[in-house]
């Protein structure tokens, strides 16, 4: 009996909790203590993919990565933006303290070009961070990107539609982002390498100074626009 147990214990297919190596990948702080705590006190994983899943741009996803972009750009690392859905507004980034000299926009024509660019950027030592809006990605492609990120030890954050939340993905960190009722961002950790998923946290993002609207902005005008 003991013998059988021993052979069973040596079977590599058996996962043994106590032998788990604490895989401490280097990470960059997100700049938000609440989120860092949920991520095991680390932050954005280096040399790995992170997926941010959200419904539509504009709910605070850039505010989430802003501290990282700011920090890396000041360290002299390049930050690539691949296929952003809208134009990143330079005055706003300058206001946010980002060094625009290190920000490079890339607009590849085709999907294969996008993957190629992602891989090349991730492998380069000059890159610090790649922000990409890749759309649909095959699992095989994600694995490839994961390897590239590992090779370059760079941070890669993919912004994807929330419909992909149900799909499996080899990304090291998967965050589901939803807008809160006020100016806040609800983060649901779907997957975290070396940790349990399911943590949630809410970041209150002070995106604008909420100066109260001085006069009601002709609400009927806005309504009129909605009813052609």
């Amino acid at each position: 009996m003991n013998d059988a147990l021993n052979t069973l214990m040596q079977d590599s297919r058996i996962w043994q909790g106590h032998k788990q190596v604490r895989n401490r990948h280097p990470a960059e702080s997100t700049g938000y203590t609440a989120l860092d705590n949920q991520l095991g006190g680390t932050g954005w994983p280096r040399g790995a993919l992170t997926e941010c899943l959200l419904d539509a741009p504009g709910i605070g996803e850039l505010q989430l990565v802003l501290p990282l972009v700011r920090q890396l750009s000041h360290e002299g690392k390049c930050v690539f933006w691949l296929n952003p859905p809208h134009t990143p507004y330079a005055p706003a980034m300058a206001r946010g303290g980002v060094d625009l000299e290190r920000i490079i926009m890339v607009h590849p024509q085709s999907h294969s070009d996008l993957l190629w660019t992602l891989e090349n950027c991730l492998r380069s030592p000059v890159t610090g961070l790649v922000l990409a809006w890749p759309g649909k990605l095959a699992s095989r492609d994600i694995r490839r990107l994961q390897l590239a990120a590992e090779a370059g030890s760079n941070i890669c954050i993919l912004f994807r539609d929330r419909e992909f939340a149900g799909h499996s993905s080899p990304a090291a960190l998967r965050l589901e982002l939803t807008a809160g009722s006020h100016q806040d961002l609800k983060i649901n950790i779907l997957k975290r390498r070396g940790g349990w998923p399911g943590q949630r946290c809410t970041l209150s993002l002070q995106r604008t100074e909420t100066a109260p609207v001085s006069r009601t902005p002709a609400a009927h005008g806005a309504r009129a626009a909605s009813q052609p």
Partner: peptide
């Protein structure tokens, strides 16, 4: 200023939930 600037102004097709600041 917003981080995203649309390609060009897009017509508003809904009534905003809350007004935060302006004009």
């Amino acid at each position: 200023r917003p981080f995203w600037l649309l390609q060009g102004p897009a017509p508003l097709d809904q009534v905003p939930e809350t007004w935060l600041s302006g004009p």
